[in-house]
């Protein structure tokens, strides 16, 4: 059974059909990439899955459960984590605090217990910290643990955001342009991490990415979208060879004349 199943998804903003009839299914353990030119509706698909937007039509199933009617804050609990295209970290907190915030869905103590800082709160904190330290070790963030986000370089922030998503302990991770703005070396690191996430952590990865070398390197299947509509699906090479996809990226001679 597919882990994530999107059927006939559509969202219209006024007259603009940002996403219009997109369907795909992501299998467990797969790395699935969505590509397309700017404004194709890739990030909008992510925002629909993470329930920030209300779809005009269509359904989203995760793990066999219909999540179309859920609230945005219910999604993480099911095991879906995400990163954002323009980095949405908590700027005035340390890296460690940011990662600990990722453990929110696993906290079981209420605010009164927290205020009194009962022994079970301390125990839970130790457990959260242990889990977060694993993420820190995985992403090699040791040097930045106590640094404020606001002062960190872009590349590190990008990694911290991935770390925060991993701290949730998800089954599915949505990466919105994980390599954008990164140097060649840094995006190479991202490629290795994605490989490791899948192989060592058993994660399923759904990503939006422009960097075709990264997409080709890590993804099992690729969905190309343009103007909110699906164009082609298959391996990276198949999709790249698709004439419709090439037309969407490069424009058709006919359009140029018009």
């Amino acid at each position: 059974m597919s882990l994530l199943q999107v059927k006939d998804l559509a969202i219209h903003f006024g007259g603009v059909k940002a996403v219009d009839g997109v369907s795909f299914a992501v299998e467990p353990g797969e790395v699935f990439a969505i590509i397309g030119p700017n404004g194709a509706g890739k990030s909008t698909i992510f925002n629909l899955i993470s329930r920030i937007y209300e779809p005009t039509r269509g359904t989203i199933h995760f793990d066999g459960k219909d999540i179309t009617g859920l609230k945005a804050h219910d999604i993480a609990r099911l095991g879906i984590a995400r990163t954002f295209q323009n980095i949405e970290l908590f700027d005035h907190s340390t890296v460690l605090a940011n990662l600990l915030m990722g453990r929110h869905t696993h906290s079981t103590t209420n605010f009164v217990q927290n205020m009194l800082f009962m022994p079970k709160v301390r125990q839970a904190e130790r457990a959260h910290r242990k889990r977060v330290e694993e993420v820190i070790a995985f992403l090699e963030l040791e040097a930045y643990r106590k640094k404020m986000i606001a002062g960190l370089p872009y590349g590190v922030r990008k990694v911290v955001e991935i770390g925060r998503a991993l701290a949730i302990g998800p089954k599915l991770i949505l990466l919105d342009e994980p390599a954008s703005g990164l140097s060649v070396e840094e995006s190479q690191d991202v490629a290795f991490w994605i490989e490791d996430m899948r192989r060592d952590m058993g994660l399923t990865v759904l990503m939006v990415e422009h960097d075709m070398s990264l997409v080709t390197q890590v993804s099992d299947r690729v969905l190309a979208v343009a103007n909110g509509r699906p164009l082609a699906m298959g391996t990276a090479h198949e999709v790249q060879a698709d004439p419709q996809v090439q037309a969407a990226y490069l424009g058709t001679p006919g359009e140029e004349a018009a």
Partner: peptide, 17 residues
């Protein structure tokens, strides 16, 4: 931590549950 999260970025606070 959830207070700080809400202060700094509501949208990612939601994404964290």
């Amino acid at each position: 931590r959830s207070f700080l999260a809400v202060r700094d970025s509501e949208v990612s606070a939601r994404a964290l549950g």
